[in-house]
Computed example of a mutant assay.
Amino acid sequence: MKSLVTTLGRFEREQLGLILPHEHVFVDMRTPDQPGYGEANAADVIALMAPQIEAIKAQGITALVECTTGGVGRRADIDLAVSRATGMPIVVPTGNYREPWIPQWVHEADETALETWMVGELTEGIEGTGVAAGWIKLSAGDDGITPLEERILRAAGRAAVRTGAVIGSHTIRGKVVMDQLDILAEEGCPADRFISIHMQEEKDFGLHRALVERGAWIEYDHVGRAPDADVLALVLRAIEQGLDRQLLISHDLGWYDPAQPGGGVPRPYTHLVDWLLPALDKAGVPAATIGRLTRDNPFDAFAR
């Protein structure tokens, strides 16, 4: 039976309700070679981020997907501390971001070593925390995949085949996503184990349809960041064209930033429930479709 792998253990479908599939608890966008990269006290992160998570718990959110991966400050130990402090299951990724946010050891590792690392984190745990990764997060350059990014992608495809984990990629352009799917197909990884993150940035809607037709998930993660009217129009268009069974929606917000004094000022994860869901209801979207977007799709995409 499929289950969601989180900081608080495995959860089956009937144990969960609303799931936010793309948020951040902790992010450091400095490159890994910078002084102080990824450094923070867990208690400070809890103090800043626990109120944000308590707010979404009050809305009925039952799990949150952490999208901070290797290269941009992933701290599974901090995710675990925040999760325990709030009782919120958090789904943590393995994998690594794109260039130049790639640490030296990844530059030097071959595909087999990277695959072994990802599989280890997905099955045994991350960096001694006891937290198993729930999915694989990576990225690709806006203008195309570099050789190093391809090496990471191929390793991720092999790890996904071995574990059933989904791969999510920060990829701005649909044509690059198509290239990623071609590479994954060569590794035997099916398209339904791939999420095209930030798909709202691709202005050619035909590519949204094309990715869904190939079997991939598409994600609109700009709720609360883009104008409400634009967000609603795009989600409604996807529903009207039958893409809703492979659509994920979220905010891409948060987060504690160790490069900022006191971790910066977090942006809440509440707008989806506060505004988008009532707006969809008012627009006549059936309750079953809204439930699919907020409960079934996130579970089906990330569970393994």
Rank of each mutant, 00 (worst) to 15 (best):
L243C: 02
P266R: 02
A233V: 06
E213H: 01
R225D: 10
H222S: 10
H198V: 06
D281G: 12
Y220F: 13
V223W: 04
H170D: 03
I239G: 04
V235I: 15
E219P: 02
Y269I: 06
R267D: 08
Q241I: 09
A259P: 06
L207G: 04
D252F: 15
V177M: 04
A159M: 13
V166Q: 02
I167F: 13
R158V: 13
P266C: 10
F205I: 14
T163S: 13
V273M: 07
L272G: 09
D281N: 13
E201N: 13
H170P: 01
K203L: 07
G174V: 02
D244S: 14
R193E: 02
G188Y: 09
K203M: 14
H208N: 01
Y269K: 04
A279N: 12
L277Y: 05
G168V: 04
T171Y: 01
H208D: 00
R193H: 07
E219S: 09
I218V: 05
W217S: 02
L243T: 00
I239W: 05
L280P: 03
H208V: 00
G174T: 09
Y256D: 07
K175A: 08
D244Q: 11
I218Q: 00
W255Q: 14
A259F: 04
G242D: 15
A160N: 05
E201K: 07
D281C: 15
Y269N: 10
G174M: 08
D257P: 04
V177G: 01
Q180M: 15
A159Y: 05
G262L: 10
R193F: 00
A160V: 05
Q260I: 11
G174K: 06
G263F: 04
Q241S: 15
R237W: 02
P286T: 11
H170Y: 07
L234T: 08
M199W: 04
A288F: 08
Y256H: 10
H271A: 14
R209T: 14
D230I: 11
G215V: 11
A287S: 11
D179R: 07
G284S: 14
R193Y: 03
R225L: 08
G174N: 09
Q180I: 13
A279I: 05
S250E: 13
D230Q: 07
D192W: 09
R162K: 15
E219R: 01
A279R: 14
I172G: 04
L247R: 02
